[in-house]
Design a protein around this nucleic acid. Sequence first.
DNA 1: CTAAAAATTTAGACTGGCCTAAATTTTTAT
DNA 2: ATAAAAATTTAGGCCAGTCTAAATTTTTAG
Lengths: 217, 217
Amino acid sequence: MQSFTEENYLKTIYNLANRQQGEVSTNALAEVTATKAASVTDMLRKLAEKQLIHYKKYQGVRLTEEGERLALQIIRRHRLWEVFLVEKLGFSWDQVHDIAEELEHVRSEELVTRLDSYLGNPQFDPHGDPIPTSAGQMPETGYRKLSEAEVGEGVCLMAVLEHSTGFLRHLDYSDLSLGSTVIIQEINAFDKSFRVQTETGRMVFVSHEVAKNLLVN
Amino acid sequence: MQSFTEENYLKTIYNLANRQQGEVSTNALAEVTATKAASVTDMLRKLAEKQLIHYKKYQGVRLTEEGERLALQIIRRHRLWEVFLVEKLGFSWDQVHDIAEELEHVRSEELVTRLDSYLGNPQFDPHGDPIPTSAGQMPETGYRKLSEAEVGEGVCLMAVLEHSTGFLRHLDYSDLSLGSTVIIQEINAFDKSFRVQTETGRMVFVSHEVAKNLLVN
DNA sequence: CTAAAAATTTAGACTGGCCTAAATTTTTAT
DNA sequence: ATAAAAATTTAGGCCAGTCTAAATTTTTAG
Ligand SMILES: [Mn+2]
Ligand SMILES: [Mn+2]
Ligand SMILES: [Mn+2]
Ligand SMILES: [Mn+2]
């Protein structure tokens, strides 16, 4: 059985490993967990002891199979709760992350199973992130960043890479909602900003910063 | 802001204070929290420091107004989550307590408000316990124990005092469900056991031990 | 009313998770 | 190739919450 803290480290290691390639560094973990490198080292020793990570001093860290299994379980819970909060309780997608950070630690297999089926076995969370299966698989999505699309393309908005309230509110404001299609009218050569037409016909300006954090199909 | 542990102590003090009269003892707390008396003393000093309890060495403990407010908030969350688990996820009433013990600590006013309205502002939890109001009031119920009722009376089963899986399963087995009415056929003079007729017509034996833990109207 | 029993508190110690400062290892740049 | 910089680990310590053993206070019984 893991503590909240251990669960958070596992989840964070998983996420960092899948953003960059190769081993996850102590400093990167310290930044995300908002602690100091020395504290991370302490925890890494403990997780290695429990065989949840592969860890060689100074060489970075990688999840073991068991560690990954646990990480996916926690991510699954997080995303299912986010679906619940949005679909059933009517929260908006920018309000749910912090609450799900707490709910994800409630430990009950039965609870997750029932929640999943109550929600209709959703495949994606409100931010378009795939929900790991109960068998412990992270579904593959073939998305690319909007910033990599070209003029003239019509692309469907599928997920966000950035989950901050500010970013999500900005998307709402810009009429960019997941599942909707936008047509790329123009890409500015200088700042790589986009002008796109949304499904409702609005012509919207999308900065490169935003386009980099929007996944499309 | 209180830790999980502090919240559990406040809730426990509240519950004990409303089962017995007067101050709550260190030993009673140690038993319920499954810790040792010495640990309880440490925590009482901390809670007194935070002005959440009135505490004089060797004299037992009582919640302050603020302490009671917090205790009721936690109990409210616990009971709302129990309703959710039973009504929405289809758990049975003997499975929900432990899960609610964890869910009750998720801290979000907004979450509780939305959950409450999603559930239709329920007045009672699956065990018949009243749900404290958002204003911080514990609704009064005028229930008495089934063991205090008399032969010939028809009484409505309203709540249970004991929440163990064993007890609740036994009630299911005995066809004794909350909201149903039973008619008292006979009270055994020797062991104070009851013979009652349930709503479905079954004739059921109710031991004194069980009758003491069933509240009726 | 007093002595034994029971309840409670204090003393001292441990673990988990965190910190700062110092030491060590690895990486980078000349 | 080597020195400076960056990253990481180690040393030593703090706090919350727990424990056991010992001391103290309150309660109970004779
Ligand atoms: Mn999230
Ligand atoms: Mn999400
Ligand atoms: Mn309960
Ligand atoms: Mn209950």
